[in-house]
Design a protein around this nucleic acid. Structure first.
Lengths: 116, 116
DNA sequence: TAGTAGAGTTCTACATTGTAGAGAGCCATC
DNA sequence: GATGGCTCTCTACAATGTAGAACTCTACTA
């Protein structure tokens, strides 16, 4: 099988995994742990534990969805993350799937109820 | 605090939780376990274990995001699920958050790479 | 130059979600 | 009254989500 074949990813992305990948993309050249966290908190208005970010980035890297490189020298250097081509495919698939599920769904009748 | 206040939900929806809720909405009046599973498989082209569906529905019910009623009589009756007002709010929040994170993200440069 | 503070990363542990499959009740029908 | 199909429940385990402490390095400063 050629490497360019578009086989479906075996595991769907988790909610937080997707958020972290998107934050990496949004953060661009400066996508290291602390910055990814900051971007996530900025956009979601929600506190994010730094340990959660790194654990998720590690798992994403193990799956080949992101890749990391060291910036600078010594052990104090930053670990810069980037979304891989495979990761981008995962994001695209995840979005497509969700759009299909949302198609034709109208929440308005429920949202107008008490508690909605 | 009035019940109509729109406090944010404490926990974000998981990927599968969201899918199951959307499948319940799409299935409408006939939203019992097996049907929810069928709808999910139809839309996602992916096999779904029935145990996964029920476990998720149970957890969603415990959180008040869906509610279930019995149809028919006897223990062979179906268990019909419906998304609650709170559940609809969860779905809406989840979508809003994701749209904000996707804003300005362009996957095309990555998808045109080998493996993408 | 020891002391302190800040930025960043790593590690450990546990809670919540995701998943699979076996088991059991009911109903039709043969 | 056996068989098969449909539905639901239960159990167990894997993967993901989360929190917080520990550690390294740098820079400042008294």
């Amino acid at each position: 099988m050629a490497t360019t074949d578009k086989i479906p990813l075996n595991t769907p992305l988790g909610t937080f995994e997707e958020q972290v990948m998107l934050a990496v993309l949004r953060t661009g050249e400066e996508a290291y742990g602390m910055n990814v966290r900051r971007e996530l908190e900025r956009v979601t208005s929600r506190e994010v534990a730094i340990g959660a970010v790194y654990a998720t980035l590690d798992r994403l890297e193990a799956k080949g969805l992101v890749a990391s490189t060291r910036s600078g020298t010594g052990s104090a250097s930053r670990r810069l993350f980037a979304v891989t081509a495979l990761g981008a495919r995962g994001l695209a698939e995840s979005r497509t799937m969700r759009e299909r599920l949302w198609e034709g769904v109208d929440l308005r009748p429920l949202l107008s109820l008490p508690g909605g």
